[in-house]
Amino acid sequence: LQAFIKTLTGKTFTVEMEPSDTIENLKAKIQDKEGIPPDQQRLIFAGKQLEDGRTLSDYNIQKESTLHLVL
C-alpha cells in the first residue's frame, strides 16, 4: 500500500509498504528516502504516536492514509 508522510514544514512524500510492516520498518524507509535517522522520527496517525514494535494494521493504516512526521 502507498501512504503519505507529511512533515511539519508541509512537505509530503509517499512510501510503499505492507500492512504487516512494523513502524520500525516504516521509519527505515523514511530514512532511505529522506535521510532522517529513525531515532529522530515521531510518527503520528489519528492523533496517536506510533510505537516501533506495532504494525500498520495494528493502527488500521490503509492505503493513501496520511501520517504526520514530527522531528
Rank of each mutant, 00 (worst) to 15 (best):
L1Y: 09
L1W: 09
Q2F: 11
A3D: 03
A3N: 03
F4P: 02
F4Q: 11
I5F: 02
K6I: 15
T7D: 07
L8S: 15
T9F: 12
T9G: 13
G10T: 02
G10V: 03
K11Y: 15
T12R: 07
F13P: 00
F13C: 02
F13T: 02
T14V: 14
V15D: 00
E16C: 10
E16K: 07
E16I: 12
M17I: 14
P19A: 12
T22A: 03
T22L: 09
I23Y: 01
E24L: 15
E24D: 07
E24N: 08
N25P: 00
N25E: 11
N25H: 13
N25V: 13
L26P: 00
L26Y: 00
L26A: 01
K27N: 00
K27F: 02
A28I: 13
A28W: 11
I30V: 04
I30M: 01
I30H: 00
Q31Y: 15
D32G: 08
D32H: 11
K33D: 03
E34Y: 14
G35C: 04
P37R: 08
P37I: 04
P37C: 06
P38G: 07
P38W: 10
P38D: 03
Q40A: 09
Q41G: 02
R42P: 00
R42Y: 12
L43G: 00
L43D: 00
L43S: 00
I44S: 10
F45Q: 04
F45V: 05
F45W: 08
F45C: 04
G47T: 03
G47S: 04
K48T: 13
K48M: 13
K48R: 11
E51N: 06
E51T: 05
R54Q: 09
L56V: 13
S57A: 14
S57V: 07
S57G: 11
S57I: 09
Y59R: 01
Y59D: 01
Y59A: 03
I61Q: 04
Q62S: 13
K63G: 15
K63M: 12
K63W: 12
K63A: 15
E64D: 15
S65G: 08
T66H: 15
H68L: 15
H68Q: 10
L69I: 12
L69Q: 01
V70R: 08
V70P: 00
L71R: 06
